[in-house]
Nucleic acid binder design. Structure first.
Length: 271
DNA sequence: CCCGATTCCTGTAGGC
DNA sequence: TGCCTACAGGAATCGG
């Protein structure tokens, strides 16, 4: 499931293949995504030169000399770099042929992903305009977490997964960060102490950074642009480990649905 | 404004 | 072995 580390890994994996490349042709095989692919995407993209790749939250931004392609991988989306001649695979939605002779393919079985084309400032797009701070930036810290959570009754886990407060933290990394911070996912956000907010912000940064370093988490089908899995799964302490011994205290890991999502925690290490 | 629930979709795991 | 159901989840959107 692409969260921030997987999107960042995808961005880094595409840098060499896409930067300075001219887009020779665009083939759209299936417009059905979270939102249908806009009718003029093919026309807009063809002939554009890629200047750089950026990331905002879980959005990948392909900045060209004509405009920006905004890519969201949803939960099953991937971008792969393949030789031009390689046969198309099931759920390949878009192929972008570069003048290097290689092709970037957007594949998304569950169609929760999206593609948008914008001219001008991509951050002004409605999907990006209201996003909260980047977790790895200085704008996000314990003080921010403490301030923004005052008066909030939602569980801490739901709070840190809300992109209005901090972006990029999905279901896996939310559970992991809360474990390392020693905070119960059910604890009301408004009741987090300053010390807890400090620890939580620090652990969110550390967990996301560590995950990026090893290429993200592959649970089922996530792969980077070269087809390689991420190795953070081996470093998960609670996610997907219900009933298994806590890696720190050996107590069985608990699981419950919180905020409509499976949530994992250690009943001892997390108060 | 805040918050909980619903919705989109397909592949896979588990039960019988 | 094969069928059926439940479940997974990012985030927009809706209803209270």
């Amino acid at each position: 499931m692409p969260e921030l580390p997987e999107v960042e890994t995808t961005r880094r994996g595409l840098l060499d293949a896409m930067t300075t490349q001219r887009i020779e042709s665009v083939r759209i095989h299936d417009r059905r995504l979270r939102w249908p692919i806009e009718a003029d995407l093919e026309t807009q993209l063809t002939g554009a030169r890629v200047e750089r790749l950026e990331r905002r939250a879980k959005y990948l931004l392909v900045v060209t000399d004509r405009g920006t392609l905004i890519v969201h991988l949803g939960m099953s989306g991937s971008l792969r770099v393949v030789p031009d001649v390689l046969a198309r695979r099931l759920h390949d939605h878009v192929e972008i042929a570069l003048d290097s002779g290689r092709t970037v393919r957007f594949n998304d079985p569950r169609r929760f992903g999206s593609l948008h084309w914008v001219t001008g400032d991509p951050l002004a797009h409605p999907l990006l305009a209201t996003l909260g701070p980047e977790p790895l930036s200085e704008d996000f810290d314990g003080a921010h977490l403490y301030r923004s959570s005052r008066g909030r009754k939602v569980p801490a886990k739901v709070f840190i997964m809300n992109a209005a407060h901090v972006v990029g933290v999905g279901n896996i990394y939310a559970s992991e960060s809360l474990f390392h911070a020693g905070v119960r996912p059910t604890k009301s956000a408004g009741k987090l102490t300053q010390a807890e907010c400090q620890r939580l912000a620090a652990e969110i940064k550390r967990v996301l950074s560590d995950a990026i370093e090893v290429g993200g988490t592959t649970l089922r089908d996530y792969v980077d642009p070269d087809g390689n899995p991420g190795y953070f799964r081996q470093r998960l302490f609670v996610y997907d480990r219900a009933g298994k011994a806590c890696r720190r205290c050996h107590t069985p890991i608990s699981q419950r649905i919180i905020g409509q999502r499976s949530t994992y925690w250690c009943p001892i290490c997390q108060r």
